[in-house]
Design a protein around this nucleic acid. Structure first.
Lengths: 203, 203, 203, 203
DNA sequence: GTGTAAGCGAGACGGTACGTCAAGTCTTTAG
DNA sequence: CTAAAGACTTGACGTACCGTCTCGCTTACAC
């Protein structure tokens, strides 16, 4: 019997410092909160994290990549899409959580906006943003909507992707142009109700 | 009243060069088209416009202000919101024009996205963007929607501002995240129809 | 009749700052005196001169070029080779001055030694050192020796270049290997007398 | 007393790798030959020797110390000063050997020059250079000259140290300033003859 | 008409940050 | 315990732009 039968050895990096990584990710979001994304520099992240620039450049290609990983890392815990059976209430709950993160936590909103801007001239970063940060979360929402459609809560014709855009795009629109609005839950509920009306099942 | 007889109170600069201004605005958009907004520098704008940096800094406080004025300048001609009486068709026409500008003309989309990003750490620029570029155009749309509501084409309860967001936010959402999609007019029409259904007048 | 007939206009740089140049040259020698040539950095020169690094790199290709110009600049005043008719006394006077500069002024010796070292991997700098710094001074000495030979003070067979090496090489030898010796004038005179004996005219 | 029975009191390091040492010394001279002393780095030496940087730093304090040991090691075999009774011919033979090493072997000249430069800000290295590399060889020469003086081949007044400087300083002078000259044996013989004339015994 | 003062091109300047390189230290893994 | 591998902090490298600041030149206005 061969030892370690299915074990495949792949030590890609040897001994990367977990504490440095943590400090860098934390520092990057803290600085975004303080000054906004734009003025943040790799130099400043390194200084605040108590880390050398080289260590940052060893593991990330750019400031954007650091912030992206930091956001992904920070957002992970709040991942799962609720599923109580009541689509409208589930959407309210999920989007309220998102809004809280984007608008209230000064660490997330500015960071995300700046990141989006950087993707305009950094295709790799754009890939990362869409695939790693937005992708899984959009997929969660899509699954929830497909399920709702299957049980007849929304119209058979409704395109989940379009619904997602109708729901979430206004959030980002406000985040970008009126940084800090939409604290009001009522407003959010009104938005969702409108979208639900647009895709209501045909009687 | 003979005060300020012939003075029309606008001699702010006495001998500003119109040709330099043109060259600068053109150069800024051209460079945005070539490389995206981020990598564009005042230095490069000056060089391409055949102008000294000093001349740029004399009239604009930052690269963002230049690009903002350039966009405003370029977008002005295509301003007026159509009003044929048929709201849906008017929206289709107007939004198709907008989409064409944002997605097809490589000079506008990237410039606008980068501009939005810069507003995150430049409040003056944010004011300028909302007041000068978006403001008048949103107001046009709002007026058209109020009129449609008055004649009963959409529900009395419908909030024009919310409708505007439902319509336009998805455009910007795609512009930012999937730079280049939504060439398809059909897709655009589907979006508008959904929103119209959300605010359809109650029978 | 043409005005300013032979005047040729050639403004190579426009408005180079003389005060920055002075500050940079002074700072470079001061730092050499403090720490020796090796540890001196362009960064430190810039900081001490109150000047930006860019200003240094605009006018000089390397630290070595700065120090070379600084040395040349500082040594210029003491240029002329004495000529009293008495070769031996002239040599004593001239070499004493040189020794004083190289061994006593902490700014010159270390700077020169480090410069020589850098020439080993910088051919441009080597050219500059030989042509600009050593060249004119060696030529002065050569002329004095040729004159002495013409009037029969040294042998007709004596090669001025060899005499120069016999005289000056020991100085540099000590400078490099026993940094700081040879304060003693007597010792210097003994050296010169030996060399004079080697090239004494044949009776 | 049976303590430390066969110990000959030299276990400073218990298991130093002789092959690593050889590889490091060789690599350091090879790199000096390729690029000159200045640009050589400990990193590059380690890489070329197939050795970790730590191993170099464990046994040597600096790049200079490595190169010094490498030079000493390489030069040792050719050490002994010839003594045929004819001082002039002995000098020619010895100095020709030296010149061959310094000027013809691209490994030695540049390495030595760079080393000398480093001594200007590294007193320990200066000690090592004078004591280990130059010291024994100068002492050899001094002994030969004292012997020549004792048998009346040179003047009783001649200071061996001064003679050494008159002979060897021009070599280093040329090595430093005209890297690569003096291949010509005739020139060398002329130099020696001049010095001999300077210290010829009085009638 | 002719100063004269502004706009203008050019570009040097003091800075900040870039992304890279090497120094010298330290830790982990293998022998 | 030594050695390789290589991650780490530090600090300088040489470059790119920033935004400010003279320079002369041209040019439109006010005398």
């Amino acid at each position: 019997m061969p030892e370690t039968p299915s074990a495949s050895a792949q030590p890609p990096h040897r001994r990367r410092s977990a504490s440095s990584r943590r400090a860098i990710l934390d520092a990057s979001l803290d600085l975004c909160a303080d000054q906004g994304y734009g003025p943040v520099t790799v130099e400043a992240i390194a200084a605040r994290a108590g880390v050398s620039k080289k260590t940052i450049y060893r593991w990330w290609p750019s400031k954007g990549a650091v912030v992206l990983e930091a956001l992904d890392d920070a957002a992970n815990p709040a991942a799962d899409f609720p599923d109580s059976g009541d689509l409208l209430e589930d959407l309210v709950v999920q989007m309220e959580g998102l809004v809280r993160g984007l608008f209230s936590d000064r660490r997330f909103g500015p960071a995300l906006v700046g990141l989006i801007a950087d993707t305009q001239h950094d295709p790799m970063l754009a890939r990362g943003l869409v695939d790693d940060l937005f992708g899984p979360r959009v997929e969660d929402a899509r699954r929830r909507l497909v399920k709702a459609r299957d049980v007849g809560q929304i119209s058979q014709d409704a395109d989940p992707n379009l619904v997602i855009e109708l729901l979430y795009a206004p959030l980002y629109y406000r985040l970008l142009l009126h940084q800090g609005d939409l604290h009001d839950t009522t407003e959010l509920r009104v938005l969702i109700e409108h979208v639900m009306r647009a895709v209501a099942p045909k009687t």
